[in-house]
Amino acid sequence: MEKKKKIVMDPEGIDRSLTRIAYEILEKNKGVANLCIVGIRTGGVYLAERLKNKISKIEGIDVPIGILDITLYRDDLRMGNKKPRPEKTDIPFSLDDKKVILVDDVLFTGRTIRAAMDALIDFGRPRSIQLAVLIDRGHRELPIRADFVGKNLPSSLWESVVVNLTEKTGMDEVIIQVSNV
């Protein structure tokens, strides 16, 4: 069966959303003082990189950027047969007293963010953790919300939302499709 695919964000749309989020981050935090960005592997890492570049273009200052792999903090390691391979975490600075912008591509159940927040706390005591996502597709299973959202995308549970980024798949687009069940 052919899968029904719909493009919900094109390259320009993604770029405009990230530009807006960069301005919103600066507005809310009144500049870049104590700010740092942490991207969640894998999609969040590229978006974090782009946000960092946008912020440095606007403010002329590079904010520190880190990479977080949440595998070791997952709550489903005991279940099923999957044994996901942990990748490297790289946060080369202390998070003590930092305002951390946590970046991911899609906000869905909230479980990834829960794991990511537990992991961040192991790197120090941030002054705040703020969440930036490109897509919020709903269906939260935990009391978690995003501070900065590129696009709210109401979706059904049998649909899947895929964020393709140039760095990973060669093109920028967000698609929604019926996942094969």
């Binding site: 070791l72 903090y73 390691l77 202390s94 992991a119 790197f123």
Partner: peptide, 8 residues
């Protein structure tokens, strides 16, 4: 890390 522990 300073806190050398993960909950895995």
């Amino acid at each position: 890390r300073e806190i050398k522990k993960v909950p895995t």
